[in-house]
Simulated scan of single mutants.
Amino acid sequence: MDAGSAQAGEESSPGSEESSRGSEESSRGRAAGAETGEGPARAGAAGEGPAREEPGTERLEKAVRAAEHALIEYEIAVETFRVEVENFSRLHHQRLGPVYARLDELDAQIAEAVAARTGDPDDIRKADEKRGAVLPMPQVEELFFGWIDSSGMLPEAQAMLNEQPVSPPSRVRPSEEARKAYRDLVRKAHPDLTQDEAERERREAFLVRVNKAYADGDAAALAALAEEWEAGPLPEPLAELLRSEELYARLEWLAQRKEVLAQMAAELEESAIGAMLKLAPDDPDTLLEEIAEQLLGQVSERESELARLRES
């Protein structure tokens, strides 16, 4: 992930290094197995207790574990950045939408004042264009019961359709307490840490709740989920140990999953909001305040310009 992204950048680099080390160890493990002349080796599932000692599998098991943990760290980085992009978008619309609307109205009034003074057809055309950009489409709100306006679906409506809180978040980046609890929970409960299908489904359902609590910035809910996880059933070990061929397949799957996450990360970074967040990777909430100050300054300048035009 790009080092410039707010959260993904600072957390993905260690994962990338671990993944590289894992790939190197995988290659060495493959070579070691070939030199022994043994048949297919048997190894324990990653994270499921000690495996039976057989030539050529110890390094391969380590490579799988390293790749799994690297993937989880990268996924945490992508998800935390996605939450920040979404929160920034909603807060930007809530806090700055009225300011943008005020700027559009002032631009229209200035253009109309200029056109009234000059009578120039080109100035009149520009004034009409500015005014047309401000006026809402008639009766659109009534058609969709207030869920959509002339610029598209309202954030509150989008939140309801996506089963998110209707009220915008209080800040772009959740608190450090929530972020730490979230990372710890994902590292413990991630579905990729098990090969058992039933246990994987249980973990996936649990992480849906974890992701929602983090997106809400709800540290208390995350703490309750941490207690629930600690008190929950431990995954049972697999009945059979994984063969070395399956471990190689596991490494290939992890690499493919990393490619999917990398694509998601790239799309987030290339979005308009993602690009804005790169301007303030350490404190995106302050960036909103700075943008608001700049916009209010532009409003003041336009109000002064409009006053001069009307007085002259």
Rank of each mutant, 00 (worst) to 15 (best):
D2F: 00
G4Q: 13
G9I: 03
S13R: 15
S13P: 00
S20R: 11
S23V: 05
E25P: 00
G29L: 02
A32T: 04
A32F: 08
G33N: 09
E38K: 12
P40D: 09
A45M: 07
A45H: 10
P55H: 14
E58M: 07
A66S: 14
A67M: 15
A67G: 06
Y74H: 11
I76A: 04
I76C: 06
A77W: 06
V83Q: 11
L106T: 01
D107N: 13
I110L: 09
A116L: 03
D123V: 01
G132S: 07
L135F: 02
P138V: 02
E141T: 13
W147A: 12
D149T: 02
P165V: 02
R171P: 04
V172I: 03
P174M: 04
R183T: 08
L185G: 05
E201M: 11
V210E: 08
Y214M: 07
A220V: 08
A223F: 06
E228L: 04
L242A: 11
L247D: 08
Y248E: 15
Y248S: 12
V260P: 00
M264L: 10
A265S: 11
A266S: 14
E267R: 14
E267V: 07
L268Y: 07
L268Q: 12
E270S: 13
S271Y: 03
A275L: 14
L277T: 03
L279M: 10
A280V: 01
D282Y: 02
D282P: 00
D283H: 06
R308H: 09
E311P: 00
E311G: 01
